[in-house]
Design a protein around this nucleic acid. Structure first.
Lengths: 146, 146
DNA sequence: TATTGTTATACTCTATAACTATA
DNA sequence: TATAGTTATAGAGTATAACAATA
């Protein structure tokens, strides 16, 4: 019997994810920082609740990360005058700069990852991964930055 | 531009990994516990240093997990009379029972994951994952339980 | 001196529960 | 009452550095 596909997947994601984390760290960031900035840049979420869902974490966890990011000067939180319960998130100039650095790191990481892969193989890999996801999560179609 | 393959991989591994963790937790275990028991069962590592490397964690991290597993009565540590620096790990009966429960959970998880996949597709997926790994880690051929 | 493993400590990510403020 | 977000707290997994025991 060969290694279960779940272990193969987990092992690959671990190795690849660590390499990515190292790149992000070298650029001064981290995975959560990158995901938050990317989601903000895409502008498809209108409050923290939606943002947390897009990243796949809880609201309180997002608050935790935003505290750090605000302390670093990457984002600012303002109250929405229309609904003062809502925090409108804005990227600062430093946040923009960080986003650009992390985007470079992400592109380089992905280029390294794709080495030797044809477009057809990438498309097939994507398809297989989506199907794995659907097999364990019927809500896999939910909005997500990833 | 489509979603980077690295993010696609990370997202899939996260969703699939959480589903697996839930199964292991329902069976009374966890990912580290499962990986340690599996590695012991395979018997391809002869000391903790090799065991930690096979699982992909540091020695001190393994010690941390073994402390918990020994407290749970799943394993015992004995000194090797041949080389008293080495701890020989043995699975207890409770450890064997836990291994069997987790193995069932792992098999069920994998069956769910493979639904709708042909053998050819699984083989191709494995091949693509191995290639991704090799692209970021030239030492990917190192001994590993995963 | 080198190796095996442990201890002490801390960091990151995540979570739940209780809370504040707004609606 | 319901919603948006925060605070307080905790737990899991991981790591590094310093250490003890042994070779």
């Amino acid at each position: 019997m060969s290694i279960p596909i779940g272990m193969e997947l987990a092992h690959t994601a671990r190795v690849v994810g660590r390499a990515f984390d190292e790149r992000l760290a070298a650029a001064g960031g981290s995975r959560p920082t990158w995901l938050v900035l990317l989601a903000l840049k895409q502008g498809r979420t209108r409050n923290q609740r939606e943002l947390a869902a897009a990243i796949g974490i809880r609201g309180a966890t997002l608050t935790h990360h935003l505290n750090g990011m605000e302390a670093e000067g990457l984002v600012v939180r303002r109250r929405d005058p229309q609904n003062r319960r809502v925090h409108v998130l804005e990227m600062t100039e430093a946040g923009e700069a960080m986003f650009q650095r992390l985007a470079v790191a992400a592109r380089e990481h992905d280029a390294r990852l794709r080495a030797g892969f044809g477009e057809d193989e990438l498309a097939q890999l994507r398809d297989l991964l989506v199907r794995l996801r659907r097999n364990v999560d019927d809500d896999a179609s939910a909005a997500s930055v990833v």
